[in-house]
Amino acid sequence: MSIRAEHEIHQRRKGRNIGVGLMLAAFVVLILALTFVKITGGDFEMPRIEEGQ
């Protein structure tokens, strides 16, 4: 027998979970965009290796 969500609370939780999921996805996209801008911008430099090392 399958378990069915019969209570209104399940709808509410589903809505909340989808909301949290979308926010996390948006956060990931934001971090990605920030990383891209920081790396391609002028204020990011790869550490230089001293000669002879």
């Binding site: 934001l30 965009a33 920030l34 891209f36 801008v37 920081k38 911008g41």
Partner: peptide, 11 residues
């Protein structure tokens, strides 16, 4: 400020 940095920082 780069728009992405500005939007993210204000957020």
């Amino acid at each position: 400020v780069h728009p992405v940095i500005a939007v993210a920082s204000i957020l």
